[in-house]
Nucleic acid binder design. Structure first.
Length: 910
DNA sequence: CATCCGACACCTA
DNA sequence: TAGGTGTCGGATG
C-alpha cells in the first residue's frame, strides 16, 4: 500500500461506527497489514498483549476501553511489561469518542476526537513499514488532500461523464482549481469567516445534493463580480458575502458539475481539512496525478523533491544571489541594489508541470528579499518581486491550472511569513488577472512571446495552442535589463521510443540545424530551444536531463550544436539516480547541466553532493580539455576490425536453453545443427545458451524433426506479426538469424554491457564454433595484443568517457570505443609483449576454473594473481604510450586525447 | 546491413 | 523491497 491508499483506508475506518472489539484489527489492516498477519493476531498466536488488547511485536499495543477511560488505559499500556518486552513502538487507547496514542521512541503524543484520528495519520505511518517515512510524514497534509480530491474527482466524473471527455476536461480542471482555491481561502481568512465556503455549501444545499451545483455556481459567480457591480448583480445574501476574486480564476465558464450525495459528502469532508498546511511546492506535483488517468495508480508519488529542484536552482542563480547578500552585509545601498536586481529577475520554466521549480524559485527569492528588508529595517515593506516574473509552459491543462494556483498560494504564504497576516490579506484580493503560465506544447511555442526579453510586446506565435491565445501569457515585462534564467525538468524520451508527434516536435526544433536529430532524446529539444532563446537575450539555462544526453551518440549532435554557438557548461551534476516516493518504480539516471555563453567565471562539477571547482567542463561532464568524439565506421588507428554479433530479435524459436538442447539431442537431432550462443550475460555469468544453426541446405533434413519444424514455424509467425518491416522480410528465412556470420574463427569476445563496478572491462576468448549474439562485439581471429588493449585500464578510461551507458553500466561500442581509440604504431616486440601479458591474464583466470568472469572481477574478491596479471598488462601497455605507468585516469585521458587530436588532424591532412 | 538506447526490466539477496 | 546488473526489440543511418 502506498501512503495515499493508507490515508483512504484510515479515513474510511474513522467514518464507520466504532466497534471496540474489531477496531484494533481494522486499524492494523488500514495500515497495510496482511490478512495472514491479522489472522495470527486474532487467534492469539502472535498477540502478546497482557491487558486484553492487541500487541504486535516491534510495532504497536492497542487497547479499546469503556467510555471515559482512555487516559488511564494509555497509562496502563505504557506501564505494561508486555509493551516493553515486545518492543512496541506505539501505544494507542480509544473508547470510540477520544483517542490517545504515544510514539514511545520519540515521546510524541496524539490526543484527539476519535473521528479526527485520520488527521494524524502521518504520526502512525511507520506502522505501514513505509521506508520513506520521513518524507511522507512531512507532507502528510498534501497526501491527505490529494487522496481526498482524487476521490471527489473520480466521483464527479462518474456522475458527469461528459466532463471527463476531451472537450470538457479543461472545465473540469478549472473547476478543481477553483475548489482548491476556495478551500485554501476559507481556512486563511481570505474569505470573511473561517470555513465559510464549506459551511455555506453545507447549509444552503439540500442534503439530497440536487442543488449543490447551483449553490456553488452562485458563489463562483459572486467571486467574479466587482464590489461596484454587486448591487446590480442581484446575488443571494449568502453568496454576496464572498469577496471579488477573479484573476482569471472565476471568469469564463462558471458551470459546476452535478453532485451526487456521495460527492457532496466528499466535498464537505475535504473542506474540513486544514488547508493552511498546504505546501504549494509539493502539493502541486502530487495533485497533478489526479487528472492523469495513467498516473492515478501511483497517485502523487512522482513529485520532484525540493532538494532535487535546488540542485538546479542553486548553482544557476541562487548561490550567486546569496553570495551577493553576504557581501552586502549591512550596507544599505548595496542591499538596495541587490533588492532592485532581484525584483527584475525572471525565472522561466518551459516544462513547468504544476510549477514546483517556479514556486521554489519564488520562495527562495522572497527569502532573500525579506533578509534585505530586515537588514534595512523595512520589515513591513511590500514585496517588489512580481509573481508574473515566474513564467512557465505546461502541456497538461490541469497542471497548468495548478501551477498558477500554487504560485498564488506561495505568494500569500510568503506575505504571511514576512509581512504578517493582516498585510497579506490586504494585498491578496483581487487576484492578478494576468496569466503567466501558458498551456501548450513548449516545443511548438515561441518562447520569446511567452517570456519576452524586453519591455516591448511580442505577439503570440504558435500554431498548436490548446486554448484561445487570449488566455495565454501576453504580459510584457517592465524590467528592462533584468536577468532571465531558464530551468526545469522537461520530459525524457529515447529516440527509439518517441511517437510521431514527438518526432515532429524534434524536427521543428532541429531541422535546419542538423540532419541527425532523429537520434536525440526528447529532452534535447529543450536544451536547443533554450540556446536559441539566447539569440534574443542572455539567459543562462539549467535542466534536469537523462544522462544519455551527455553520452555516446548524442554528444556529437546536441552538444556540438551548442558548442558551435558558443555555449559552455557552467555547472554539472554528474549522473545520479532520480528518486521519488513511488513504490516499485525503477527510476532513471539523470544529470543536471547548467549552460551559458559567458567566458569567465567559476565552474563546478558536483558528484554525490560534493562540489569541485574546475577550469573546464566538457559535454561528457568531466573536467578534461577534450574534444567531442564522433563515432567512426572503421577503426582509425589500427587494421583490426571489431564486428557486431548476430541480430536475434524475433528469433526466440531458434534459441535453446540447455535443457531444450538436451531434449533435441535425445530426439536425435545432430549436434552440427546446434551452436553455443554467447552474449554479455553468458560471457560474464557463464550461463549456457545454444541456438539452432541451419543452412538452407540443412533445411530438409532439419525439418524432419517435428520440434525443429515447429520452432521454425514459430519464428516465421513472430517475424510476420511485428510492425517492423525489416523483420517482416526476415520471415522469408525463419530458420536462421538476420545474419549468418561468426561461425568459424576463434574470436575475441567483448560484452556490450558490463557493470560499472568492475575495475576492468572483461573481454575474453572463444573458439570458432561459438556464435556471438548482438549483445557482444567480436574480433574474428583477433590478435591477442588487441585483447590486451581492450582489457586495459587505459582503454577503460576511454570507454567510460566516450561510450554510452545503460543507466550507470558501461555500454561498449565498436564505432565509438574501439574505432576511435588512439593506438600508436606497435613494434613486433610491443605486440609480443602485449600478447604475453594477455595470455597471462587468461591463464590467471583459468587457474580459478570454474569461477565466472562476474566472480573473478568482483572488486571485493578479485584474486591476487589476476590482479597482478592485469597490473603487468597495464604496465606493458602504458610503457608503450609514455614510457612509464600513468599516475591516474586524468593523465590517461589527457594523453589519449592529445594523441587523438594529433592523429586525427594528421590523418585528415594526408 | 549494423548499431544504439531504454522517465528500463529483471532477478536476487 | 531495494540494489545490482544486463535482455530484447524498435528504429535509424
Amino acid at each position: 500500500m502506498n501512503a495515499v491508499e493508507i490515508e483512504q483506508a484510515v479515513s474510511d475506518l474513522a467514518e464507520q461506527p466504532f466497534d471496540a472489539e474489531a477496531f484494533p484489527f481494522a486499524f492494523l489492516e488500514a495500515f497495510g497489514n496482511k490478512p495472514t498477519t491479522l489472522k495470527k493476531l486474532r487467534n492469539g498466536a502472535s498477540n502478546k498483549s497482557d491487558l486484553g488488547g492487541v500487541l504486535q511485536t516491534n510495532n504497536i499495543h492497542i487497547r479499546t476501553c469503556a467510555p471515559g477511560a482512555v487516559a488511564e488505559t494509555l497509562t496502563a499500556l505504557r506501564d505494561s511489561p508486555a509493551t516493553a518486552r515486545a518492543k512496541a513502538r506505539f501505544i494507542l487507547a480509544t473508547d470510540g469518542h477520544t483517542l490517545e496514542a504515544e510514539d514511545l521512541t520519540s515521546g510524541e503524543t496524539v490526543a484527539c476526537d476519535y473521528i479526527d484520528f485520520p488527521s494524524h495519520f502521518g504520526f502512525f505511518l511507520s506502522l505501514a513499514g513505509i521506508s520513506t517515512v520521513r518524507a511522507i510524514k512531512e507532507n502528510a497534509f498534501d497526501i491527505r488532500a490529494t487522496s481526498r480530491l482524487n476521490r471527489l474527482y473520480v466521483e464527479l466524473l462518474k456522475d458527469n461523464p461528459d466532463w471527463g471527455r476531451a472537450e470538457r476536461r479543461h472545465d473540469m480542471n478549472h473547476f478543481m482549481a477553483r475548489l482548491i482555491f476556495c478551500f485554501f481561502a476559507e481556512d486563511t481568512d481570505i474569505f470573511n469567516g473561517t470555513g465559510l465556503f464549506t459551511a455555506t455549501i453545507d447549509q444552503f444545499s439540500t442534503r439530497d445534493s440536487t442543488n449543490t451545483h447551483e449553490v456553488m455556481g452562485q458563489i463562483f459567480r459572486a467571486m467574479n463580480i466587482k464590489p461596484t457591480d454587486r448591487a446590480a448583480a442581484n446575488l443571494r445574501p449568502w453568496a454576496d458575502v464572498f469577496p471579488y476574486v477573479n484573476g482569471g480564476l472565476f471568469s469564463g465558464n462558471l458551470d459546476v458539475p452535478r453532485f451526487s450525495k456521495i460527492a457532496r459528502s466528499y466535498l464537505l469532508h475535504i473542506g474540513n481539512l486544514d488547508w493552511t498546511q498546504i505546501n504549494p511546492d509539493i502539493f502541486g506535483s502530487m495533485i497533478q496525478a489526479v487528472a492523469d488517468d495513467e498516473e492515478r495508480g501511483a497517485l502523487g508519488m512522482h513529485y520532484t523533491s525540493v532538494p532535487n529542484i535546488l540542485k538546479v536552482l542553486n548553482p544557476l542563480f541562487l548561490d550567486g544571489l546569496n553570495a551577493a547578500l553576504e557581501a552586502a552585509g549591512d550596507n544599505a545601498r548595496k542591499l538596495l541594489n541587490l533588492r532592485n536586481r532581484i525584483a527584475r529577475i525572471r525565472v522561466f520554466d518551459p516544462a513547468c508541470g504544476s510549477g514546483n521549480f517556479l514556486v521554489i524559485a519564488y520562495k527562495q527569492l522572497r527569502a532573500i528579499e525579506a533578509e534585505i528588508n530586515r537588514r534595512r529595517g523595512e520589515t513591513d515593506r511590500k514585496t517588489e518581486i512580481p509573481l508574473t516574473s515566474f513564467r512557465g509552459i505546461e502541456i497538461r491543462d490541469f497542471s497548468a491550472e495548478i501551477a498558477r494556483l500554487a504560485l498564488i498560494i506561495a505568494e500569500y504564504q510568503c506575505d504571511v511569513t514576512y509581512r504578517g497576516q493582516k498585510e497579506a490579506l490586504a494585498a491578496f484580493l483581487p487576484l492578478d488577472a494576468q496569466n503567466w503560465i501558458t498551456c501548450g506544447n513548449a516545443l511548438r511555442l515561441d518562447w520569446l512571446s511567452i517570456c519576452p526579453p524586453t519591455g516591448t510586446g511580442v505577439k503570440m506565435q504558435a500554431d498548436d495552442l490548446f486554448q484561445t491565445p487570449l488566455d495565454q501569457a501576453q504580459i510584457d515585462f517592465e524590467n528592462e535589463g533584468g536577468e532571465t534564467y531558464i530551468c526545469g525538468n522537461p520530459p525524457f524520451k529515447g529516440s527509439r521510443k518517441q511517437k510521431t508527434q514527438e518526432k515532429e516536435d524534434l524536427e521543428r526544433v532541429f531541422s535546419g540545424l542538423t540532419a541527425k536529430w532523429k537520434n536525440v532524446d526528447y529532452v534535447g529539444a529543450w536544451l536547443m530551444k533554450a540556446a536559441l532563446y539566447n539569440d534574443a537575450c542572455e539567459a543562462p539555462f539549467a535542466f534536469v536531463a537523462t544522462n544519455s544526453i551527455c553520452q555516446g551518440q548524442q554528444v556529437p549532435i546536441t552538444w556540438a550544436l551548442l558548442q558551435k554557438r558558443g555555449f559552455r557548461i557552467r555547472f554539472a551534476h554528474t549522473s545520479f539516480k532520480w528518486s521519488n516516493l513511488a513504490a516499485n518504480k525503477a527510476g532513471v539516471t539523470v544529470v543536471i547541466a547548467g549552460v551559458d555563453r559567458k567566458h569567465d567565471g567559476r565552474r563546478w562539477i558536483i558528484t554525490d553532493d560534493i562540489r569541485r571547482e574546475v577550469a573546464n567542463i566538457n559535454p561528457y561532464l568531466t573536467h578534461h580539455e577534450i574534444d567531442i568524439v564522433p563515432a567512426h565506421k572503421k577503426p582509425r588507428f589500427t587494421q583490426v576490425q571489431m564486428e557486431y554479433g548476430v541480430y536475434y530479435s524475433k528469433s526466440a524459436g531458434l534459441i535453446l536453453e540447455p535443457s531444450e538442447k538436451v531434449r533435441l539431442v535425445e530426439q536425435g537431432v545432430p549436434l552440427r545443427f546446434m551452436r553455443r550462443f554467447l552474449g554479455s550475460s553468458e560471457l560474464i555469468n557463464g550461463n549456457e545458451r545454444y541456438c539452432l544453426w541451419l543452412d538452407e541446405a540443412d533445411l530438409e533434413e532439419a525439418n524432419r524433426y517435428p520440434e525443429i519444424a515447429q520452432r521454425i514455424a514459430a519464428v516465421k509467425r513472430d517475424r510476420l506479426e511485428t510492425e517492423d518491416r525489416a523483420v517482416n522480410n526476415l520471415a522469408a528465412k525463419p530458420y536462421q538469424f538476420r545474419e549468418r556470420k561468426g561461425d568459424d574463427l576463434v574470436k575475441i569476445f567483448v560484452p556490450i554491457v558490463s557493470s560499472e563496478n568492475r575495475e576492468y572491462f572483461p573481454a575474453g576468448l572463444s573458439d570458432g564454433s561459438v556464435i556471438p549474439t548482438s549483445k557482444v562485439f567480436y574480433i574474428p581471429d583477433g590478435p591477442l595484443w588487441a585483447l590486451s588493449i581492450i582489457i586495459s585500464k587505459l582503454h577503460l578510461s576511454w570507454i567510460e568517457t566516450i561510450c554510452g551507458r545503460l543507466e550507470l553500466r558501461l555500454s561498449y561500442s565498436n564505432t565509438m570505443g574501439w574505432n576511435t581509440f588512439p593506438i600508436p604504431k606497435l613494434t613486433e616486440k610491443n605486440r609480443a609483449d602485449l600478447t604475453t601479458a594477455a595470455e597471462n591474464i587468461l591463464l590467471a583466470r583459468e587457474a580459478h576454473f570454474p569461477a565466472t568472469i562476474a566472480d573473478l572481477y568482483d572488486p571485493e574478491k578479485m584474486p591476487d594473481n589476476l590482479r597482478a596479471a592485469h597490473d603487468r598488462n597495464d604496465e606493458v601497455l602504458e610503457r608503450i604510450y609514455i614510457g612509464r605507468r600513468f599516475r591516474n585516469d586524468t593523465e590517461r585521458l589527457e594523453k589519449l586525447f592529445e594523441m587523438y587530436t594529433r592523429m586525427t588532424t594528421k590523418v585528415s591532412a594526408e
